[in-house]
């Protein structure tokens, strides 16, 4: 795969985090991805989470619950992650459009079982994720957990190609 995935993670322990919470509609008037950078997760109200914290700013990975990215089709929700250095989201499940947008941008949307997400959250909130192929190593609180995830071949090919535009422009 082209990109390197993984890095320090932030935990968003709630189901149904929607795209309005990831990037509010009022910023959709921006015509560049870079301009979205300061507004990541601005409207997300979650105990202990501060979108302006250094931790959030330095994250490479988001670990979260079910139905992540529901709501609007705005790819701005993926771009705001991309420009902030987030390269993958690990969740119990995703809303379809958000998941597709991630792969279309060459980023990883990884699904793990609820029990697996529970075990990751139990490591505390100082987490680091390492990715090798479809294997994950999550470190936190002096412990280390291994997981493996499934990646549909087509999604894998999109990520390898660097996104859907690159893939489609070559093939169709």
């Amino acid at each position: 795969m082209k990109k390197r995935f993984g890095g320090p993670a932030i935990c968003l322990d709630r189901n149904d985090i929607n795209t309005d919470e990831i990037i509010p509609a009022k910023y959709l008037t921006e015509n560049s991805k870079e301009a979205l950078k300061p507004f990541m997760l601005e409207d997300l109200k979650l105990e202990g989470f501060d979108c302006a914290s250094e931790k959030a700013r330095n994250a490479g990975v988001i670990v979260t619950r079910a139905n992540f990215g529901c709501g609007s089709s705005r790819e701005h929700a993926v771009w705001v992650f991309e420009v902030n250095g987030i390269n993958m989201v690990i969740a119990e499940s995703f809303a379809r459009i958000f998941r597709q947008n991630m792969f279309n941008c060459g980023l990883l949307a990884v699904e793990l079982k609820k029990e697996e997400i529970d075990r990751i959250f139990a490591l505390g909130d100082d987490l680091d994720v390492e990715v090798a192929g479809t294997d994950l190593k999550v470190r936190g609180g002096g412990r280390e957990l291994d997981f493996s995830f499934k990646l549909n071949q087509f999604d894998h090919d999109l990520v390898t190609a660097g996104g859907w535009l690159e893939y489609a422009n070559r093939k169709y």
Binding site: R74, E75, Q100, N101, L165
Partner: peptide
């Protein structure tokens, strides 16, 4: 409904 990249490919291809 799709994101902007799907839309972009739709427009182009």
């Amino acid at each position: 409904g799709v994101g902007t990249t799907d839309l972009e490919v739709g427009i182009l291809k």
